[in-house]
Amino acid sequence: MNQLVRNLTVDSLTLSPLTPTIGAEVSGIDLAQPLDAGAKAALRQALLDWKVLFFRDQDITTEQHIAFAREFGELEVHPFAPHKPGYPEVLAITHNRENKGKENTWHSDVTWRLEPSLGSILRAIELPPVGGDTLFADMYAAYEGLSDEVKARIDGATAIHDFAHFRVAMRKRGMSEEQIEEFNKAYPKPEHPVVRTHPETGRKALYVNAAFTQHIVGMDEDESKALLKHLYAQAAIPEYQCRFRWEPNSIAFWDNRASQHYAASDYWPAVRKMERVTVVGDRPY
């Protein structure tokens, strides 16, 4: 860890890894303040190295949250999920007695987009007294741990992704088929590689997820389902994971290109309020 900090050339930045390969808590930085060039470069490299960064005691405003995210790229507006009033870039994620948590499936955010996100920055607003942790999985390790036989089967393969569960929710809310068709046209089902090459590190990562991947192109339905089930299960291997226990004013910043996450929904009927800002990414290859 000390060698990594020295390599980042920012004396005040300290990284405390949660596991050998994924997750590091970052201290020595105030996210309410603009980043200088050194801190920005250090954080970007740390994100590439650890896939998810955690920050404690960051009592920041919504504007500061947005400003921090913009240091890493353009921000996206989620077309389906509720946003914070007055802030279309800020996804408001609130669960309570009437709205139980539903993010308890391993996934990478918005892979139903043609250009899925680079990363997401999530801030804790209100937390249950216990529970509500988020787990993260290293998808480099998930790929590298596959057998040579499975690697050969998925080499060069692509899969279709879709926002299917959002479509179900829209119908439940009474949205017409004509309105839904407009979303279908705006977000046609993209075809992404089953194994993605990270655009910055050049490493290969498993890039299918149980929330949004539909089927592997060119395979019959049964074969695709069986193979995807095996690939999805890799994220659930503890050796590939870290787990983050939230506190008030905690922030997590994860690389959607190299990780998946799972929000434990074990706190119902308690309240859990989070706010997320997402950085636009590029088309996977």
Rank of each mutant, 00 (worst) to 15 (best):
108 S>E: 11
265 S>E: 09
164 A>G: 02
56 R>G: 07
284 P>K: 01
61 T>I: 01
6 R>V: 09
100 K>Q: 15
264 A>R: 06
137 A>N: 15
274 M>G: 13
174 G>K: 06
112 W>P: 04
247 E>S: 14
85 P>C: 10
241 Q>P: 05
131 G>N: 10
160 I>E: 04
277 V>F: 13
34 P>K: 01
137 A>F: 14
14 T>H: 15
183 F>L: 06
52 V>G: 06
134 T>I: 09
40 K>C: 01
219 M>K: 03
35 L>H: 05
61 T>G: 10
229 K>S: 15
251 I>L: 13
173 R>M: 06
207 Y>W: 06
22 I>R: 04
92 A>H: 15
239 E>H: 00
11 D>M: 13
2 N>K: 14
98 E>K: 04
190 P>V: 12
256 N>H: 09
251 I>P: 07
153 R>E: 10
55 F>M: 06
255 D>L: 04
26 V>L: 01
283 R>N: 03
203 R>K: 15
7 N>V: 09
135 L>H: 11
129 P>W: 09
27 S>Q: 12
162 D>W: 00
224 S>C: 04
12 S>M: 09
2 N>G: 02
179 Q>V: 02
60 I>D: 02
47 L>D: 02
198 H>S: 09
170 M>L: 14
212 F>E: 11
196 R>E: 01
190 P>H: 12
179 Q>Y: 06
80 F>L: 13
101 G>E: 13
224 S>G: 00
143 Y>I: 06
56 R>V: 07
79 P>D: 11
17 P>I: 06
187 Y>M: 14
170 M>V: 07
75 L>Y: 10
161 H>P: 04
